[in-house]
């Protein structure tokens, strides 16, 4: 577990910190995510994707639950994550992160904002629509198009 921690703690902590904006709360999520992995290592199916991506998704979901003060919505076993780039090594993740940041910077601002509000603030599409004054359908489409644009950045 110490080895897994050394390899992946940075990604878990960064995601939790981005969502919660508080170092202490992010450390609590870090603790919770790795304890869950220790208690239930079979929850992650290595045949179905990368541990780094899976931990990023689990952490984001837990952090959003903490942010919105709600009980965890999904069992960690239910989450299957399929991601193209290899995220096992620190250097791989740095390269991928740069690609994602580049893709985000070329995205139209309303699309980037909708995506980030949904992902890092845990807002529903109706909350985003209320906040931006745009139609629900537009927000939905922007979120999906934003996610797919990130995928395409790795297919090029």
């Amino acid at each position: 577990m110490a080895e897994l921690y050394d390899r992946y703690s940075s990604i878990v902590y960064s995601v939790a910190l981005r969502v919660l904006g508080d170092a202490g709360a992010a450390e609590d999520i870090l603790q919770e995510v790795f304890l869950q992995l220790w208690r239930n290592p079979g929850a992650f199916d290595s045949a179905r994707g990368s541990l780094g991506a899976w931990l990023a998704v689990i952490t984001r979901n837990r952090a959003i639950d903490a942010l919105r003060r709600r009980k965890p919505e999904t069992d960690i076993e239910d989450v299957i994550v399929s991601v193209a780039p290899d995220l096992a090594g620190e250097a791989d993740r740095q390269r991928a992160a740069e690609k994602v940041r580049a893709a985000l910077s070329t995205m139209p601002a309303p699309q980037r904002n909708a995506l980030q509000m949904a992902y890092f603030e845990g807002l529903s599409h109706s909350e985003i629509a209320a906040k931006t004054g745009e139609p629900l359908g537009t927000i939905k489409t922007r979120i999906r198009a934003g996610l797919i644009a990130l995928r395409k950045a790795f297919q090029a």
Partner: peptide, 14 residues
């Protein structure tokens, strides 16, 4: 979900 994980990667650093 994988695309979301890529978005999460944009935070790495701390």
């Amino acid at each position: 979900r994988g695309d979301g994980a890529l978005l999460a990667l944009s935070t790495i650093g701390p």
